[in-house]
Simulated assay, not measured.
Amino acid sequence: MGVWQTVGLVVVPVLAGWSALRIVARQGARALDYLSALFWSGVAVGLGLGDGPGWLLVAGCVTAVATVLAHLVVVAARRMNQPLVTVDPEAFRARLLAACTADGSPEALLAGVGPDGTVTVWGLEAVGIARDRHHLGGACGSCLLEEFVTGLAVDGEQAVEQYRAQLRRRANQLFLLRRGVISGDWTAELRPVQGFKAPYAYAPCRVHRY
């Protein structure tokens, strides 16, 4: 194998690893970094499976896995960087219900419990509830969300049953709530969490401690 061929084989995994590092450095801002990392990883794997050396196959697999992990790190960092706000559980639940039942309330929202047990709500910024990580003290975030959903949505109890079934499978879920245009009734359904899917491991209640 010539010098230039050897250099080329070394450069391929280096480019893949560098692209994966840029995902973390840039907080995943550029899709080009993802495409570059996966492309060069694929080239390394292809060469390793062909006439290339075996270490190239290993390097391609490592950089491909590193790209996925880099994406998960970015997602987790974005969520953890949201402000942490301590709230009273009952007051916060009442505030959510009031925001959704007042005149001019938003037509849809997302709500979920993070891997640290905090509650985050998306879609109520216009009524003064930011996308913060709401810390509930010693209360259970999943319990609060279930009470909120059953108190707001006409099919809330069914959604809560599905939510608990998914948590038992260690698959965290978000509640998507929508207000009917004609009836004005709220309905609830589940959406999978993007990124780290494990539910909060230290829930302060027996029902949600899996």
Rank of each mutant, 00 (worst) to 15 (best):
L57D: 03
Q173I: 00
A66S: 11
M80T: 15
V193C: 04
H135G: 10
I182S: 12
G123R: 01
Q5C: 11
F148D: 07
A98T: 15
V14I: 15
A139Y: 11
A64G: 07
D88R: 08
R78A: 07
L177S: 03
R79G: 14
G60H: 01
R93P: 05
A139V: 02
R95Q: 12
A153E: 06
T86I: 14
G195T: 00
L152Q: 00
T6M: 13
Y163N: 09
V24Q: 03
A159L: 11
V43W: 07
A139F: 09
G52D: 06
S142L: 08
G138D: 15
A20L: 00
L56P: 01
R178E: 14
V119S: 06
V12H: 04
R170S: 13
W186E: 05
D116W: 08
R169L: 11
S105N: 10
V14S: 10
V127I: 03
G128V: 00
Y202H: 14
L145I: 00
R26N: 09
G2W: 15
L97N: 02
I23N: 00
T86W: 09
L176D: 10
L96D: 04
E157L: 12
R209N: 12
H135C: 12
R22E: 10
G60M: 03
Q173E: 05
F92K: 07
E147S: 08
D88S: 05
G50F: 09
A70V: 00
L190K: 02
A98K: 14
L84C: 04
V45H: 03
V11A: 13
R30E: 13
T63L: 11
V85Y: 09
G48N: 08
P83M: 02
G112A: 03
G151T: 00
A37Q: 04
L21D: 12
R79K: 05
V85S: 04
Y202D: 14
S105I: 11
S41H: 04
I182P: 11
F196L: 14
P204W: 01
V11E: 14
W4C: 12
V68Q: 00
V45C: 05
V10W: 15
P192M: 00
S41L: 06
E107K: 15
F196S: 08
D103L: 11
A91F: 11
L84Y: 08
D116Q: 08
V7G: 10
Q194R: 15
L174W: 07
G141I: 07
Q5E: 15
Y210M: 15
L176I: 14
T187L: 08
A171T: 07
A94E: 15
L96Q: 03
D51P: 04
R168W: 03
Y200D: 06
D51F: 15
V75Y: 11
Y202Q: 14
D116C: 07
L35E: 10
V68D: 00
A70W: 00
P204L: 06
E161L: 12
R26D: 09
G137F: 04
A126V: 07
G141D: 01
L97Y: 05
D132C: 04
L96N: 02
R79A: 07
A25Q: 12
W186Q: 03
S36T: 13
R95F: 07
